[in-house]
């Protein structure tokens, strides 16, 4: 056993090292390319500052203006995208994402404040939509060919194509403004003290409700339709009909034979989706003025605030790459047919 285990572990480690290394290289290359693209934007720092900052805001503070200009120059000191991006990368590796142009605060600080909110609404909505979608998709799949099936199918096909900025705006308008059930902006009310206390937690939930609802609705249809299709496919498999012939009770068949096999292909998508959804939350955060990274990015793009832009890009890229890595690593735990490394 031991003799066999050792080469296997070694093999696993090798594979892991390869995958992690590959992920890191992906992140690095994307960072460098994005950096080079931003840097090639045609504006000079001075014009840029003029265009970004209202003239009167620094009119009386020429030193500040000079400082800013100098600072922006240090961002691309060599004018050579390769060397500059390498330099930027070096800074990133040291945990330094630069200074935000507008607020003059380190980018890391700004992101650290916004990130938890995004993680909160994105993961919550994905988990809710995932579990709901799986249950629902499976139920509908079991009812394949009936009226219930076809009407729910068309409903979800329609809802899937509604973009979040429309559903979000509608929810905001009716539930937020018209009915006033939910706040229309922010992450919590100014009347509560942040911390582990009930008023604060309630306020957080109330504020996050609409963004989470919007994102959940956006994702739900996809999961339902995907799970329905997988369920129908799995129901046609020989091992399901043989389980029925053996007289295995139907709950057992539903979970162990149909459910487990039908979910497998959705698992990888789940992890991917968590990675990609950070990008998807941009619109939602903007609509609900929710102070997450999406909101931040939206503003950063509007003001050409590129240190901040880059900082957020890095987070997005990293979450996607790490998501994929995690999915690959854990998939073999679920599907015995797949060994790590294949």
């Amino acid at each position: 056993m031991l003799i066999k285990l050792k080469p296997f572990l070694l093999y696993m480690l090798k594979w892991l090292a390869k995958r992690v290394g590959f992920s890191i290289i992906t992140i690095i290359i994307t960072i460098m390319i994005s950096w080079a693209l931003i840097e090639y934007s045609p504006e000079s720092p001075a014009n840029f500052i003029n265009s970004v900052l209202p003239p009167n805001s620094i009119a009386g503070k020429p030193t500040l203006r000079l400082e800013l200009e100098q600072y922006l120059m240090t961002l691309k000191p060599h004018g050579n995208p390769l060397i500059d991006s390498l330099q930027y990368l070096w800074q990133v590796l040291h945990g330094n994402l630069g200074i935000d142009i507008i607020s003059q605060v380190p980018v890391t600080t700004i992101i650290a404040q916004a990130l938890p909110w995004t993680v909160f609404i994105v993961t919550t909505s994905i988990l809710i939509s995932y579990f709901l979608g799986i249950r629902l998709g499976m139920k509908i799949g079991y009812k394949r060919g009936t009226k219930v099936d076809s009407s729910l199918m068309s409903l979800f096909t329609v809802t899937r194509s509604i973009p979040v900025y429309i559903s979000g705006a509608l929810l905001l308008f009716f539930l937020g403004f018209e009915l006033g059930w939910f706040p229309t902006g922010g992450a919590f009310s100014i009347n509560v003290t942040p911390g582990f206390n009930i008023p604060f937690i309630l306020s957080v939930i109330k504020h996050a409700f609409l963004p989470i609802l919007t994102l959940t609705l956006a994702n739900l249809a996809g999961w339902v339709l995907h799970m329905r299709a997988n369920t129908i496919y799995t129901l046609g498999e020989d091992y399901v009909s043989f389980a029925e012939i053996r007289g295995i009770n139907s709950n057992n068949i539903e979970t162990k034979y149909v459910g487990r096999n039908a979910i497998l292909p959705l698992y990888t998508s789940l992890i991917y989706t968590i990675g990609f959804s950070f990008g998807g939350s941009i619109f939602v955060e903007e609509i609900f003025s929710y102070p997450g990274v999406g909101h931040l990015l939206y503003n950063a793009i509007q003001y050409n605030d590129y240190p901040l832009e880059m900082g957020i890009f890095i987070i997005l890229i990293a979450s996607v790459v790490v998501g994929i890595l995690l999915a690959d690593l854990t998939y073999s735990l679920l599907d015995p047919r797949v060994k790590v490394g294949e």
Binding site: D238, Y239, S241, F242, Y257, R260, N261, L264, L334, D335
Partner: peptide, 12 residues
């Protein structure tokens, strides 16, 4: 059963 190559649950 007939098509026995796929009659066992792959995840069990």
């Amino acid at each position: 059963p007939q098509s026995s190559q796929n009659s066992l649950n792959p995840t069990q």
